[in-house]
């Protein structure tokens, strides 16, 4: 991995342009972003699960996880949920508009360690982006990984994102996408309920399976319990956590949980590393 501007300038972002805008649902958009300078396009690479800080001058800065394949050099995609100042500013961006980007930061999902293993990914709501990047990575390196289940939990039918992608993924070998809707809907014939309901029909080889998740805290708690029930070892469970972030480099203090920092120790944690922490994780 290579970081833009490295250590000498803690906060200076590189300039990057918006290359595509895709409306996923009423409140979520996916932006394609490409660095302006050749050198930055060449040097920027990331692991699925890592994040960047996006700066909109005069508005602010916020962390977002890449949702695209790490194979594309110098280009990445972010799915943004419109929630506040920065995210609203990002909703107003058009093709060609310029943003500041620094990173990538943090530790992602252990795609090296996962080689040869089966994978259960559980995404809730706007927790999908980093896991989507994992799926893209797995598909690009299909022979390296075993069977894959993508379990996606979402409130309403209209909230569903990545419709195109999920269709494309479903065509990949040994990869199953399953979705659970919390609110029943005439357009939906599949599973209704919380995402962990999808665990009931899962037949996995627990000893050879890693469980990955990202989503709201309460979902993460129940997914982790569900993983344990399925027989997945605590050391094979990886969870992406969210906290308020200001610096992204372990200095501002905001993202701490117990003695850990989500920005530098995470955002993806091995469950055994956070299971017995002084502070409640969920």
């Amino acid at each position: 991995m290579s970081m833009i501007n490295g250590n000498e300038e803690s906060y200076r972002p590189a300039l990057a342009a918006v290359t595509s805008v895709l409306q996923e649902n009423a409140r979520i958009r996916t932006l394609g972003i490409t660095f302006r300078l050749d050198a930055e396009r060449k040097s920027f690479s990331f692991n699925p699960g890592q994040f960047v800080m996006i700066t909109l001058p005069g508005i602010g800065e916020a962390p977002f996880s890449m949702c695209s394949s790490p194979k594309e050099k110098g280009h990445f995609e972010l799915s943004i949920r419109n929630l506040g100042n920065v995210t609203d500013g990002m909703f107003r961006l058009r093709k060609g508009d310029v943003v500041g980007v620094r990173g990538p930061y943090g530790h992602g999902y252990p795609v090296q360690e996962m080689k040869g293993r089966d994978i259960v990914l559980v995404a809730g709501g706007i927790g999908f982006p980093p896991l989507a990047s994992v799926v893209e990575h797995v598909i690009a390196n299909r022979a390296d990984y075993g069977k894959v289940w993508v379990l996606y939990g979402v409130k309403d039918y209209d909230d569903v994102i990545y419709r195109q992608r999920m269709k494309r993924w479903s065509k990949a070998k040994d990869l199953e996408v399953r979705m659970a809707l919390e609110t029943p809907c005439s357009k939906w014939k599949g599973c209704v309920g919380v995402v962990t309901k999808l665990f009931n029909k899962l037949k996995i080889d627990a000893g050879n399976t890693v469980g990955l998740s990202c989503g709201p805290p309460i979902m993460l708690k129940f997914v982790t319990l569900g993983f344990e029930k399925l027989g997945i070892r605590d050391g094979d469970i990886f969870i992406s956590l969210e906290r308020l972030m200001q610096c992204g480099i372990g200095k501002c203090g905001h993202c701490n949980i117990g003695n850990k920092y989500v920005c530098t120790d995470g955002p993806v944690f091995r469950y055994t590393d956070i299971k017995n922490m002084a502070e409640e994780v969920w």
Binding site: P57, G58, G60, Q246, C247, C252, G253
Partner: peptide, 10 residues
């Protein structure tokens, strides 16, 4: 030492 980064909104 904890801090926040605030954009002087220009």
């Amino acid at each position: 030492y904890c801090f926040s980064l605030v954009h002087d909104s220009g």
